[in-house]
Design a protein around this nucleic acid. Structure first.
Lengths: 354, 354
DNA sequence: TTGAAAGCGTTACCAA
DNA sequence: TTGGTAACGCTTTCAA
């Protein structure tokens, strides 16, 4: 122990506590060491996996540590070791019903690996740079982003040697580690089923222009339709919300009628469209109009809707995301890699099939 | 600057980088200080709100800092200052549709106050002690818990001087700061409206025994019914999920029939009950059976359901929670206080009223 | 296997 | 207003 440092502090606060009931200073490894009659280094080694320590010493120290209620200070550990066991999760639009499931899965998987989650729920994409700054200040070991990151932002993480895994986002120019659900295969399956069932007049309720998933799905649907000989398919844009799905259907039906099928790029908008179709236009779904979605989120399977959709394999995807991230934390030289999963077709009851 | 410490390190890494493209060491306040020709203390003062620093010096330092991409290390700041600007949010059952909204609101409000969120999504109440340990290791400034905490756990936070605000939870014996939505007033309003409309035969779909909100609402509903002369009301238990609401209605109707109204203690179960009533029993809701819920979450207002319910003032509640917490962080001597908000009655379409 | 000592990157408290 | 120096609580060499 350094003379004149711990010891004096300890003595001082002990003296004070005789007169005033002062705040009990946080228990440190020095306290444990003193009480156990060993060095502070020995205490530290007890909490480091591969350290060399005699079983007997270890037992003694652990006993004293438990007695004193010692808890290693994560800040100090992170500062000295360069590892915080902290991962930032960036999510935009948490109220989108699809994300809570993802967040819950990610967080439980990370926790299982003894990693804590620093959550950044973005309300508007503009804040991303501030968030990025905060993420870096906290020296997280890695980032999982279900929010759009620009190439410049990705580059910044790369420069700081912070591994990033994109969740259901694609990067622009720069290659990045990413996990996603195959939009092309998914929309193709939906479209092919609808075409096979005789639908010919289509409308699309797309997402915002700046959403990569939304645009991927819209383009995939259009491409699949084009292959089937259907061109010039009208589309409107929503923001993935229930209300915008409802508005979307109004917009489509207001412009012209006679749709056979409406393709919404997510379930929540599909549900909004289904409700609007039934309530506002008196349509029977799927008899008068087929509506399909994407995601396979909870409410999509509720019996009032039973949305015909593509279910994302959330378990596998979150598992892959966490695995990819931890790999890259352990070995930062891992190359970029994108893993794409194929969603499962859900028959549902919102589309007339076959 | 201490001789033989920073300076040598800096020189070394500079020499190395001429041969091998080594990891650029993180930019520290020493780097900024050296480049700006000032002391490290001066740099630090630039980032502390009330510090005394000459405007001119400050400008120079900030310029150099920006140029070098300097970011204060949050770990070091937290370690020395005792403040981390980190708040832990404990949430059980994130997939309950009500929580994502709460989480999004809390997180954006905290972020607005320059506080970061450490998220702990509990999958089972048993893990709480591990989580508590982790929370304390990270020296968070405070905790907002939408998960059940035992008196012993609350005491532990109190001992460590970590302020806690309970969200929609009540503490047992120990008084604690808490924000909640008045179950008694809410259920009373629902019951009185139902009674006024002539309902006499009631059933309740309650929550798990260990849920304080669930039990509060169940008891409140029973009490209000008793006041209206309705006794021996049967109830079944669910877990707040859609499926358990459906199962709950099956259980109630399987035992006896002839219910006028079913009171579910949250919207998600009410929705499950509505769907089961319609689809499995061919009931018209609300003509044949009234069903009411609680919370006023997103899907409850979807036109297929329009659940008659009590809407929790989430904005006000999250605002209050964050305010109470920050107050207690600033002044740990603040006394325990519970703020209870009254929810708003939502007429909806799932109950026959008047 | 153990202990001493050197940091990690800050803030806080001094004198100057 | 400044710069020097002592912490904060830990991990990590390095000798013993």
């Amino acid at each position: 122990m350094k003379p004149g440092r711990r010891s004096t502090t300890g003595t001082k606060s002990a003296e004070v506590s005789n007169t005033v009931p002062t705040h009990p200073r946080r228990v440190t490894s020095y306290d444990v060491a003193r009480r156990a009659g060993v060095s502070q280094s020995a205490v530290s080694r007890c909490f480091v996996p591969g350290a060399s320590i005699a079983p007997k010493t270890r037992a003694l120290i652990m006993e004293v540590a438990a007695e004193l209620g010692y808890r290693p200070n994560a800040l100090a550990q992170g500062l000295i070791s360069g590892r915080t066991n902290l991962v930032a999760i960036l999510i935009s639009n948490l109220t989108n019903l699809y994300y809570p499931e993802v967040l819950a899965e990610l967080s439980s998987r990370l926790l299982a690996r003894d990693i804590r989650v620093l959550l950044f729920s973005l309300t508007s994409e503009s804040e991303v740079d501030d968030v990025l700054d905060q993420v870096l200040r906290h020296s997280v070991d890695g980032v999982i982003s279900a929010a759009r990151l620009s190439d410049a932002q990705l580059r910044q993480f790369a420069e700081q040697r912070v591994p990033v895994v994109l969740y259901n986002r694609t990067s622009g120019a720069a290659p990045a580690a990413s996990v996603s659900c195959d939009s092309v295969a998914g929309e193709r399956e939906l479209v092919e089923r609808l075409l096979a069932a005789g639908h010919r007049r289509f409308g699309i309720i797309a997402g915002p222009e700046d959403s990569s998933v939304g645009e991927d799905r819209r383009r995939a649907a259009l491409a699949a339709l084009a292959e089937g000989g259907i061109e010039d398919v009208p589309f409107v844009r929503g923001d993935f919300s229930y209300e915008s799905g409802s508005r979307g259907l109004h917009a489509l039906l207001g412009e012209r009628d006679g749709y056979d099928a409406v393709i919404a790029v997510n379930d929540q908008m599909a549900i909004g469209a289904i409700d609007a179709g039934r309530d506002d236009f008196g349509l029977r779904i799927p008899d008068d109009l087929s509506i399909v979605g994407f995601d396979g989120t909870g409410p999509a399977s509720w019996t009032s809707y039973r949305v015909t959709s593509i279910r994302q394999p959330i378990r596998r995807m979150t598992d892959a995301a966490v695995a990819m991230l931890t790999e890259r934390i352990a070995d930062p030289s891992m190359p970029a890699e994108s893993r794409q999963f194929t969603g499962q077709f859900i028959v549902g009851r919102s589309a007339r099939l076959g």
